Amino acid sequence: MALDPQLLEILACPDTHHAPLDYDAPAQTLTCTECGRVFEVRDDVPVLLLDEARPGPAERS
């Protein structure tokens, strides 16, 4: 089951910039269009916790 398109329209990065997220259905991830953080989708539920996100390219050292 994929995420509802209406839900995808309103989801945003939980960081202060609240940028839109790109959905990768095969990978089951949401990627922030601004900071690049990658959020997992588990059991069709987006996990939008900053502490659980993988860092984006700008955050990697």
Rank of each mutant, 00 (worst) to 15 (best):
M1F: 02
A2H: 02
A2I: 00
A2N: 06
D4M: 07
P5C: 04
L7W: 01
L8F: 10
L8M: 12
L8G: 12
E9K: 15
I10T: 15
I10R: 15
A12Q: 15
A12I: 15
A12E: 14
C13D: 10
C13Y: 07
C13S: 10
P14S: 12
D15C: 15
D15F: 13
T16N: 11
H17N: 06
H17R: 12
A19T: 12
A19N: 09
A19H: 09
L21V: 05
D22Q: 10
D22T: 12
D22E: 11
P26W: 04
P26L: 04
Q28T: 05
Q28Y: 01
L30C: 08
T31F: 02
C32N: 07
T33Q: 15
E34W: 04
C35H: 11
G36I: 01
R37V: 05
R37L: 07
V38K: 03
F39L: 02
D44W: 00
D44F: 01
D44Q: 04
P46I: 11
P46F: 14
V47A: 02
L48N: 10
L49F: 10
L49N: 08
L50E: 13
L50M: 15
D51N: 13
E52M: 08
R54E: 07
R54C: 01
P57A: 13
E59Y: 02
R60Q: 09
